[in-house]
């Protein structure tokens, strides 16, 4: 990551934050919705895209963050409640990641699916903490002794946190830990042979990823003032995975692009759909478009929008490739497997 990249990102963040601060409620809402999803998508990309650990429990982790932040915030912890959300998310993530020390690929993915279902079940029945199916009402976030009430302020806070999260994760990718993740993704056996402590490195990835998932959940709770179990079911995990696939696996910038796409698409369809006769029909069409879109993306642009952008850019600027910066780690091509043994290899 060059200083230039950081400066561009910072300028972008300031610009969007300013727009968010001046815009009307709807635009402010869009900005924080995208920013919050982006934090979650980046955290998920760290696990799936960088480390190769396929997880479907992201929704549950975001839920853990949301309920933690909600409870802590209601108890008057102020900004610390966001930190608490991150820490609880990290803890839950490490717990869900434990089987990854023994299982790989598909089997680990299924164990996270199990974790997702168990967590969303717990959200429903742990009345004292979550207020069950009726959901937990969350008081506004108290920052510097003052409750944050307006959507515009939340837009600014979310953008700032998104920038900081991106900075942290892209720096992390430049350390030995970050590089070790990529080796583990390709082959755990080789990683071990290179002297990498595979279990410890995986655990670090789970902790960091969980922290940002929790942070994402905390922000979600404060901005929507509400945390209910239905929001953190498998559907959220699928949304988040869709973001990183649409944006680009193994790319932080891709996570943000994917989050923009996946968050704004339903909004757009909603606008169009207001012409339709019934609300059910609108939501049905929204879901259908989402399903088709995931499939089409995977078929037509499996390396995500980031690679599309890279190709366009390299076409414009001649053949000069731009593959050195941290955020645009070049991606796998289609002919390669995901380092999951015995699964793709069976095919001819």
């Amino acid at each position: 990551m060059t200083t230039r990249t950081v400066l561009i990102a910072a300028a972008l963040a300031v610009a969007v934050a300013l727009v968010g601060y001046e815009a009307n409620r709807f635009w402010a809402y869009l900005i924080y919705a995208v920013a919050i999803s982006s934090i979650g998508a980046m955290s998920l990309n760290l696990l799936i895209g960088f480390c190769g650990q396929i997880t479907f429990a992201q929704g549950a982790l975001i839920g853990v963050g949301a309920y933690t932040a909600g409870n802590l915030g209601n108890a008057g912890w102020g900004a610390l409640s966001l930190l608490g959300a991150g820490l609880c998310g990290a803890l839950a993530s490490a717990l869900i990641g434990l089987p990854a020390l023994r299982l790989r690929g598909l089997y680990f993915a299924i164990s996270t699916l199990a974790a997702q279902f168990i967590f969303s079940y717990l959200f429903k029945i742990l009345q004292p903490l979550t207020n069950g199916v009726s959901g937990l009402v969350v008081k506004p976030l108290v920052l510097f002794g003052r409750p944050v009430a307006s959507d515009q302020e939340y837009a600014v806070i979310s953008i700032v946190l998104l920038f900081l999260s991106w900075l942290f994760l892209s720096r992390l990718a430049q350390t030995d830990v970050g590089r070790a993740l990529l080796v583990i993704r390709e082959s755990e056996l080789v990683a071990r042979g290179m002297g990498i402590d595979v279990s410890r490195t995986k655990m670090k990835a789970f902790l960091v990823s969980g922290f940002f998932a929790g942070l994402c959940g905390g922000l979600l709770a404060f901005t929507s003032r509400f945390a209910n179990p239905e929001a953190f079911e498998i559907g959220l995990s699928v949304d988040q995975t869709a973001m990183i696939i649409v944006g680009g696996l193994g790319s932080l910038a891709g996570s943000v692009i994917g989050a923009v796409f996946v968050t704004l698409l339903p909004e757009a369809i909603q606008r169009l759909g207001e012409l339709m006769p019934s609300a059910d029909l609108v939501s049905a069409f929204r879901e259908m478009a989402f399903g088709v879109l995931i499939i089409l993306f995977l078929l037509l642009e499996p390396r995500g929008l980031v690679s599309l952008g890279q190709r366009l850019r390299s076409r414009w600027s001649g053949s000069k490739s731009n593959a050195g910066t941290a955020v645009t780690i070049p991606l796998r091509d289609r002919s390669r497997t995901f380092a999951m043994p015995a699964f793709n290899r069976r095919k001819v």
């Binding site: 259908m288 989402f290 995901f338």
Partner: peptide
């Protein structure tokens, strides 16, 4: 030959689509 996570997501996308279709 796509990554396994992509294949899983395709079938999940199909699930979402078919549900919405019936809805």
């Amino acid at each position: 030959k796509a990554p396994i996570v992509s294949i899983m997501m395709v079938t999940l996308g199909l699930l979402i689509f078919l549900r919405a279709f019936c809805l």
